[in-house]
């Protein structure tokens, strides 16, 4: 059984129709890419899964259970972790508080994420633990948002453009993090940065104008020069 299954999802923002029948599968242990340009519908797909956007048609299921229409906090508790694209750390709280408040959302008896494990994975954050969210740089904020979501021990992690607006050095750091996290967590990764995604994913969906236009393994996607040009390229 797949961790996540989307079938014919149709979503709207107010009056604008954004997703036109998006279907995709995320199998356990995989990193699945959701690739497309700005405005293609990547964020809306992730928001439709976590319930910030309520799809008006189709179904979303997590481990075989229909989660469409549930309030987001229940979906999160079931094990879907969402990392928003615009970061949104809790600006008035310290790095440590940003993490600690998460520890009782979905605790695991053993093997769950703890603040210590997070600090092992993100040594930078350990140094900054007493800094407030608003005093961090963009890259540091991005790390906090990923770490914060890991603290709820998600079975599936939804990552929305983690490299957006970040300098190359930090992008490389984020890549390292994802490679660590994938060992224990299934990941659905939305990105427009193709090069970044291809090294990471097992399988990918290319989305354009709210529709899945192409899917395949990283190799298949990389080999399709025509599609790269048409949907992603310049």
């Amino acid at each position: 059984m797949n961790e996540l299954e989307l079938r014919e999802v149709n979503s709207y923002y107010g009056k604008s129709h954004i997703l036109f029948g998006v279907s995709l599968d995320v199998a356990q242990g995989q990193v699945v890419g959701l690739i497309g340009r700005n405005g293609a519908g990547k964020s809306t797909t992730l928001k439709s899964i976590i319930g910030i956007v309520q799809p008006r048609g189709g179904s979303v299921s997590f481990r075989g259970k229909d989660i469409c229409g549930m309030p987001s906090h229940r979906i999160a508790k079931m094990g879907v972790g969402f990392v928003p694209e615009d970061r949104r750390v809790f600006s008035d709280l310290s790095v440590l508080d940003n993490l600690e408040i998460m520890q009782n959302v979905n605790p695991q008896r053993e093997g769950g994420w703890t603040v210590e494990k997070i600090f092992d994975l993100f040594p930078k954050l350990a140094q900054l633990r007493h800094n407030r969210g608003m005093d961090l740089s963009g890259g540091e904020q991005q790390m906090v948002t990923i770490a914060r979501t890991l603290m709820i021990n998600p079975a599936v992690l939804l990552l929305d453009e983690p490299t957006e607006g970040l300098a190359p050095l930090i992008v490389r750091e984020i890549k390292r993090l994802i490679q660590e996290v994938r060992k224990s967590t299934t990941i659905l990764l939305a990105e427009q940065n193709l090069r970044f995604v291809l090294d990471l994913i097992d399988y990918g969906y290319v989305i354009d104008q709210g529709r899945v236009v192409l899917q395949g393994t990283a190799e298949e996607l990389d080999a399709d020069e025509q599609a790269k040009e048409k949907y992603l390229g310049v």
């Binding site: 809790f90 008035d92 940003n98 600690e100 408040i101």
Partner: peptide
């Protein structure tokens, strides 16, 4: 207390707090 900090977090960003599993 975590309870108090969660309240602060929610007052800072309701939508994300909800998406992270807090019953806002």
């Amino acid at each position: 207390t975590t309870f108090g900090k969660i309240l602060t977090a929610i007052s800072l960003d309701r939508e994300i707090s909800n998406a992270l599993g807090f019953n806002v």
